[in-house]
Computed example of a mutant assay.
Amino acid sequence: MVDLTLSEAELERHREHVTAFVREKVEEAGVDGAVLGLSGGIDSTLTAYLIVEALGEENLHGLVMPGAVSSEENMSDAERVAQELGITYDVFEINPIVDRFLDAYPEAEGDRLAVGNARARTRAVLNYLVANHEGALVVGTGNRTEAAVGYFTKYGDGAVDCHPIGNLYKQQVRQLAKHVGVAEDLAEKVPTAGLWAGQTDEGELGMDYDTLDAVLALHVDGPLSVTATARQVENASEDDVRRIREMYERSEHKRSVPASPEPLQ
């Protein structure tokens, strides 16, 4: 399998690169601070650590936004991260807001995907409400792996001003998190988007992240064919590789601005 392990020197370079990026984006926007949704997962945890390093704890406002299916452990971890970093944070229950959407459109009740995405988009609206009021940037937590396969909600967790860890594969997110001092139990916890009860990222993707990272690096981002990739990646069949390629192609619209017709000549 392809080795995506970063050396200590490479991890330090990524750390410096990301923190410089955050400072640059804040300066370009003419603001002083950032707003970040804290889920208790490794992506938002690492991003919070790096923002504090870049801007100082006084310039990051964390939002913990539990929904009907949010686990107590994740929400507790989200508050733990905020408290460990010494940042200001608020807890907003999103259930009443999502319930009002369903009151307006009851036909969607029970549609797991539609309601799950509504939860993600509700969080995005709250992020921007706070950021607009405070004159801050909304910072995202997307990584390279999930962006490639479209594993995020369009105009939900994808609705942000920048993604500081967007060039890191998921396993590299874990590596960098440990490098900057994130606790082992947070760095290694099972990832979940928290869109519905019992949901886990790897269960929904049908593949563990290390295998997915390898397929993306060798085939989608790299030069190898489907057959060659399957030979290189122990836990991925040719059908698995094709499925990941299809996910990448189908989710292209999520990584692009909304399309318009070409101008008339």
Rank of each mutant, 00 (worst) to 15 (best):
Ala148Arg: 06
Gly194Ser: 09
Gly166Cys: 12
Val160Thr: 14
Asp240Met: 08
Met207Asn: 04
Val69Pro: 00
Glu262Ile: 13
Val180Met: 08
Tyr151Lys: 10
Ala147Val: 12
Gly142Trp: 00
Gly33Ile: 12
Glu53Gly: 13
Gly198Ser: 09
Phe92Thr: 10
Ala48Lys: 03
Tyr49Trp: 14
Lys25Asp: 05
Asp77Pro: 00
Ala120Glu: 07
Gln175Ala: 14
Ile94His: 08
Gly37Phe: 08
Val130Phe: 05
Glu73Gln: 12
Val22Asn: 05
Tyr89Asn: 01
Pro263Phe: 13
Asn127Arg: 08
Ala148Met: 15
Gln172Ser: 10
Leu176His: 07
Glu27Cys: 00
Leu224Gln: 07
Tyr209Ala: 04
Leu50His: 04
Ala228Cys: 01
Gly62Val: 09
Cys162Pro: 00
Leu46His: 05
Asp161Arg: 05
Tyr128Gly: 11
Ile94Asp: 09
Gln232Met: 14
Asp103Met: 09
Ser260Lys: 14
Gly203Ile: 02
Ile51His: 04
Met1Thr: 13
Gly33Arg: 13
Arg80His: 14
Pro261Ile: 05
Glu238Asn: 10
Ala78His: 01
Thr192Glu: 07
Glu234Phe: 04
Gly30Ser: 08
Ala187Gly: 06
Gly116Ala: 11
Ile87Met: 12
Ala29Gly: 14
Leu36Arg: 09
Leu224Trp: 01
Arg121Val: 09
Ala118Phe: 10
Thr141Pro: 02
Glu79Trp: 00
Gly116Thr: 09
Asp32His: 12
Ala228Leu: 10
Leu6Trp: 10
Tyr89Ser: 04
Ile94Met: 14
Leu195Val: 05
Thr145His: 03
Pro191Ala: 04
Leu216Tyr: 01
Val220Met: 01
Glu204Ser: 07
Leu63Asn: 02
Ala236Lys: 08
Val190Cys: 01
Trp196Gln: 09
Gly181Ala: 10
His17Asn: 15
Gly67Ile: 04
Arg80Asp: 12
Thr45Lys: 08
Gln171Asp: 04
Pro66Thr: 09
Arg15Val: 01
Ala48Thr: 02
Ser237Phe: 00
Thr122Lys: 11
Arg121Ala: 11
Val125Leu: 15
Gln265Met: 12
Gln175Lys: 05
Met1Asn: 14
Glu27Tyr: 01
Asp32Pro: 03
Val35Phe: 08
Val125Cys: 13
Val98Gly: 05
Val220Gly: 02
Thr227Cys: 02
Ala259Val: 11
Leu216Glu: 01
Asn117Gly: 11
Thr141Val: 10
Asp90Val: 01
Ala236Leu: 07
Ser256Asp: 11
Thr145Phe: 07
